[in-house]
Amino acid sequence: MRLAVYNVENLFDRAKAMNLDTWAEGRPVLERFAALNGLLGQIGYSAADKKKMTKLIVELGMEKSDTGPFVILRRNRGGLLKRPRTGGVEIVADGRADWVGTLELRDEPINEHAMRNTARVMSDLEADVLGVVEAESRPVLSAFNREILPAVDGMPFRHVMVIDGNDERGIDVGLMCREGFPIGSMRSHVDDHTPDGQTIFSRDCPEFEVTTPAGAQLIVMVNHLKSKGYGGKAASDARRRLQAERVAQIYTGLIDQGIEYVAVVGDFNDTPDSDPLSPLLMGTSLTDIFKHDAFDDGGYAGTYGLCNASNKIDYMLLSPALLAKVERGGVFRKGMWPGLRPKRWDTYSELERPRDAGSDHAALWADLNI
């Protein structure tokens, strides 16, 4: 069987702030969105909180309207703010209970070429079991499977599963399987939390049980750990380490139960030598597929952007018994922007500019004799 993992970076719609030409353009918007969302969610609003909220609302382009260029403030009931005729914004609520509504990132359709190139990658991987990162939802992933894959002469997957996670932007993780590889039991960790009540996973860490035609049972854990994209480095690193520790605990529990075949796949948003990932990469019996003698990295150590070693953030980790069943593996980069000087790898003909890329991430695959 062939196991693969791919960060599709959304399928039909993507937050406008995440769909700009460069990450540097979108990052300030996402940071302000996260900061304002955090303040709005507090039980009580101090004078200092209100001052920060006002500043962020103006910076997000909502001084005159609840609809900014990248963010929408939806106010269903109650009073959060008012906009005096003289200008500016005044927060009138004293806490979260005083109003009902949400702060949301505005979406826009994905570039058509990018959408089709995402589908080409998913098809050309020829995976029997595909872990998917950053899918909007199960209905969206299912629609993409039914409608877009056939449009590029791809064969739709038989099984499509996504468990709704914690990310308000609608970037979840899921699994797609071919006929003969049914998904059995599933276990979500969306509600896992620390003793003080902090939710651990930014999305989820679902366990999917897959049965192969030969009767082997494989547990696939799909992950998308905390990004470095916005928020302070120390806080982001601490959250990612907390997530890695929990994934390691879940994996160890499966092994202790006598389950032999376990794969932990996904976008971990950090490098193999990083401290946050050490509980998972150094503290368990899992092995990165990149270390297998039969794995071909295509000449580049990374999986993101231009695939330098510092951009190795996507993983396929295998338990000892599963690692022993690897026949070969590799990195699929045909849907990624290859750079210009020089062009680093061959791409699809429709990929003529960075916005046409199916994703900024490479896909990983491995053939397993199980």
Score class of each variant (00 low, 15 high):
E245W: 06
G266Y: 08
G231E: 00
H292G: 06
A235S: 13
L277K: 01
D267T: 02
T284D: 05
F295G: 01
P276Q: 05
Y230C: 14
D256F: 02
P279L: 05
G258V: 00
D270R: 11
D297E: 12
D297V: 02
I255C: 09
I255Y: 09
T252P: 10
A234M: 03
L277W: 11
A248F: 12
P272G: 07
D256K: 13
V264F: 14
L225A: 06
S274C: 11
D256G: 12
K233M: 11
F295K: 01
E260W: 00
S285R: 06
G266K: 00
E260C: 14
I250N: 07
Q249P: 05
E260R: 13
I255L: 12
H292S: 05
Q249A: 15
G231L: 02
H224K: 13
E245I: 06
R241V: 06
G298V: 11
T271N: 09
D275T: 13
N269A: 03
A234T: 14
G266I: 02
D267A: 02
I259N: 05
D296A: 12
N223C: 15
N223G: 13
I250D: 06
P272A: 04
Y230L: 07
G283H: 14
G229V: 06
Q257R: 15
G253S: 08
T252V: 02
R241N: 12
D288C: 14
G299H: 05
P276C: 12
A294Q: 13
G232Y: 15
S236P: 01
A235V: 14
G283V: 01
A235Y: 03
F290V: 10
S278P: 08
T284V: 07
N223H: 07
I250P: 13
A294E: 04
